[in-house]
Design a protein around this nucleic acid. Structure first.
Length: 430
DNA sequence: TCTGGGGTCCTAGGACCC
DNA sequence: TCTGGGGTCCTAGGACCC
């Protein structure tokens, strides 16, 4: 069995260019939430040495001088285009794993040298039907498919398709000799540094290293990576998305806040998003953790974390909110300039599994709404959300004010081309 | 002035048990 | 002076991914 990894080229930038063709050939950078750091860069922007994940203020001047187009991120747009791309990719193979917003692993449905032609077809159809540029890496393991995709993106092969089995042997030796370890899937900055200290610089060094020593020093994960690079497949395609073990929602504030009220508002919004994610995943939570913290980059750092178990497993806002409020009271310290708040739901369980309920809470207490009523209300709110988006009603302290001190900054967001009639471009309107 | 968000997995260390 | 061994469970923190 061989694997393909199909990965879009600077996906967010490519999405923006679809609707703004004048951005072709120009340096373009997409910023993270709050216009914080660079998360997607066109080839031209990479050439200007604007690093992935670097804070905007560090290269703002350069961007201005060089005429870089800087955009806030528009996740509604990227999400919709991602869904279309994944649907199309799914038609090329019986087995697909959606690995990230812009990547899919696929089983290759053809054998031998036909793989190259198959990859080329995939690439051309995605380009033609969706307008998105992608590269295809093909190999006998997921890690080698990833590596070949990396080489394809670096332009080492013609046509953006790189097949491990089609690389001439002498070339393979050469590439393994000149590709550094941190290009490998699963090897980041720290591991890369540590390996370098062990005199393992390039992939070829790593392939020569003693597997027992690797297993002992670095653990099972890297030992597996070594096997995968040798063409022994250890990682299977995960076609059915696993249920999540944690669900979290957090956001940095547009500007620092100090008041309990502001923190409550933001946490209430996170609680509603978390509850929606939980129901979407078909799960209930048994515990809630909140975190409020100041900026780690300035002044004295404060991080307040508090946990509350839920009396009964739940996926309803009303129950979660009780726990969140209690946790907030514990974690809050006055006088701190808070930069971020977040919620983490843990001990999740399938809604269909039998649950252990509290002995001490009367199930038929008429004073509190029962689960059926909460569910009915949640369903209605979900529908309204779908129809009216941000304008839909929500619970409690959230949604009272539309302009909040803590709202995100998004100075230059593109229109919702695919989600709002009013934002659809009109051909010929200039 | 200004530094994202949401996941996973692994390991170390402490509490506790017999 | 000298203070066991082996197991489980939980949590915190680190590293990685995109």
């Amino acid at each position: 069995m061989r694997f393909a990894l199909v990965d879009a080229n600077n996906f967010y930038v490519s999405c923006e260019r679809l609707f703004a063709p004048q951005l072709e050939g120009r340096p373009v950078v997409i910023l993270s939430n709050n216009d914080g750091c660079a998360v997607s860069r066109s080839a031209e922007a990479k050439a200007l040495k604007i690093g992935m994940g670097t804070p905007y203020f560090q290269w703002q001047k350069l961007a201005k001088q060089q005429g870089v187009v800087v955009l806030s991120s528009n996740y509604a747009l990227y999400g919709e285009l991602s869904a279309r791309m994944m649907r199309l990719l799914g038609t090329f193979s019986a087995a697909q794993e959606i690995y990230s917003i812009d990547e899919s692993f696929l089983h290759i449905p053809v054998s031998g040298k036909d793989a190259l032609r198959w990859g080329s077809t995939v690439r051309h159809r995605v380009r033609k039907e969706l307008g998105l540029p992608v590269c295809v890496g093909i190999g006998p393991s997921k890690t080698l498919a990833k590596l070949c995709n990396h080489w394809a993106k670096k332009g080492r092969v013609a046509e953006g398709v790189c097949d491990w089995d089609s690389i001439p042997d002498d070339q393979k030796v050469q590439w393994l000799q000149d590709t550094p370890m941190d290009a490998v899937w699963g090897v980041g900055r720290k591991l890369g540094e540590s390996l370098r200290r062990q005199n393992i610089q390039q992939i070829a060094d790593f392939l020569r290293a003693d597997p027992v020593a690797i297993r002992q020093r670095y653990g099972i994960v890297l030992a597996r990576t070594q096997q995968e690079l040798q063409g022994i497949s250890c990682l299977q395609l995960e076609q059915i998305p696993q249920k999540k073990q944690h669900i979290q929602c957090s956001r940095s504030f547009g500007q620092a806040v100090e008041s309990l009220t502001d923190l409550e508002e933001s946490l209430s919004v996170h609680t509603q998003r978390c509850a929606a994610k939980l129901r979407q995943d078909g799960q209930k939570a048994q515990g809630v953790q909140i975190q409020i913290r100041s900026s780690p980059h300035r002044g004295r750092y404060y991080s307040g974390v508090a946990f509350r178990p839920l009396a009964n497993p739940s996926n309803h806002y009303q129950d979660l909110w009780q726990a969140v409020k209690a946790a907030l009271a514990e974690a809050y310290r006055p006088g701190v300039r808070y930069a971020k708040s977040g919620i983490l739901l843990s001990a999740l369980q399938d809604v269909n599994m039998p649950e252990t309920r509290s002995l001490f809470i009367a199930e038929d207490d008429a004073a509190t709404p029962g689960d059926a009523q909460k569910k009915a209300l949640a369903d209605v709110l979900t529908l309204l959300k779908k129809r009216y988006g941000k304008a839909a009603p929500g619970f409690g302290v959230a949604g009272l004010r539309t302009e909040r001190a803590w709202s995100m900054r998004a100075g230059n967001r593109s229109p919702y081309y695919l989600n709002a009639w009013s934002d659809i471009p009109v051909v010929g309107a200039g």
